[in-house]
């Protein structure tokens, strides 16, 4: 854990934390299952006000529970990079959106934090950055749970060595993006009728003209755009972290202990997880 210079570590309320995590995860999964199995018929007839409300409350509430469970277990060194990741997400995502690109590029900060500080910090970054971005761009708001999932998966991929070689990164990006796209599609459909940028809507229109249901068309579009987007994001993040000075990488216990960057991590594999004193 962290290394307070003067104060003893606070007593851990381990059980309530994991309860929050389990509840948050269960709420998100339940919301997704509900949307996919119960509602798709409703959208063709009238409009499901229950569906959009469930997607907003379920995904946002689940994301909030996850963040509540994750925050207490983060060290200060992971905590200070989260705002950085959030600011990067929003700044780059806004540029990509205003250029009308077919990919979003709004997860660079999330993946970067996940690679350096671990899956938990990545999930918190994803959820919080979409919640904050929602203030300026309401269309980001309901995707908070999907963004948290991206952060979590990216961190797990990094832990198991997806960033040790540059050619592993796009493979991991493809898998993470495909999962993320499937999860994000019902949100886009039930909240906004699948409205997106011109680029993404053109893809949906192609599937719609073939007679697909809106949810099916949006899922196919999500699979295409999100996989492509995450491949690019993962490669960009890999190239960025390879260019980082060793000192910057070494301040993160996660990157050190799991040798996330292989030889470039700078630490020894035997470093105990508890030793968070700045190794300089």
């Amino acid at each position: 854990m962290s290394s307070p210079l003067t104060l003893p570590p606070e007593p851990a309320a381990q059980r309530s934390r994991s309860l929050l995590l389990v509840l948050g995860g269960a709420l998100i999964v339940a919301t997704y299952v509900f949307l996919v199995t119960v509602q798709p018929t409703e959208i063709a007839g009238g409009m499901g006000s229950a569906a959009s409300l469930v997607s907003l409350v379920g995904f946002l509430g689940g994301g909030a529970l996850l963040v509540g469970g994750i925050l207490p277990m983060l060290t200060t060194s992971s905590l200070v990079v989260i705002p950085l990741g959030i600011a990067l997400n929003i700044a780059i995502g806004q540029i990509a959106g205003s250029l009308g690109m077919q990919i979003y590029l709004d997860a660079i900060g999330t993946v970067l934090v996940a690679v350096l500080a671990g899956p938990a910090a990545g999930a918190a970054t994803g959820a919080l950055s979409n919640a904050l971005w929602g203030l300026f761009n309401p269309f980001a708001l309901p995707f908070a749970a999907g963004a948290a999932l991206i952060g979590l998966l990216a961190g797990l991929a990094a832990k198991h060595g997806a960033f040790r070689r540059v050619y592993f990164a796009p493979v991991a990006g493809l898998v993470v993006g495909a999962i993320g796209g499937i999860v994000a599609a019902p949100v886009a459909v039930f909240m906004f009728g699948a409205a997106g940028t011109f680029g993404t809507n053109a893809i949906i229109a192609v599937f719609r003209s073939m007679g697909d249901k809106l949810l099916v068309a949006a899922t196919k579009q999500g699979l295409l755009s999100d996989s492509l987007d995450k491949i690019v994001v993962f490669v960009v993040v890999a190239l960025i972290v390879y260019a980082l000075p060793q000192r910057a990488v070494r301040q993160f216990p996660f990157a050190r202990t799991h040798r996330v960057l292989g030889e470039r991590s700078g630490g020894r594999a035997t470093t105990p997880a508890g030793a968070d004193t700045a190794a300089r």
């Binding site: 962290s2 290394s3 307070p4 210079l5 003067t6 104060l7 570590p9 606070e10 060290t75 200060t76 060194s77 200070v80 990079v81 950085l84 600011a87 990067l88 970067l112 960025i240 260019a243 980082l244 000075p245 910057a248 301040q251 700045a278």
Partner: peptide
């Protein structure tokens, strides 16, 4: 990113020295 990370690591030390995790 490099510039922001260097800033963040400085902030890390400052926050710890001021008892942020208390």
């Amino acid at each position: 990113v490099i510039g922001l990370l260097v800033d963040a690591s400085e902030r890390n030390h400052m926050l710890e020295a001021r008892g942020f995790s208390s």
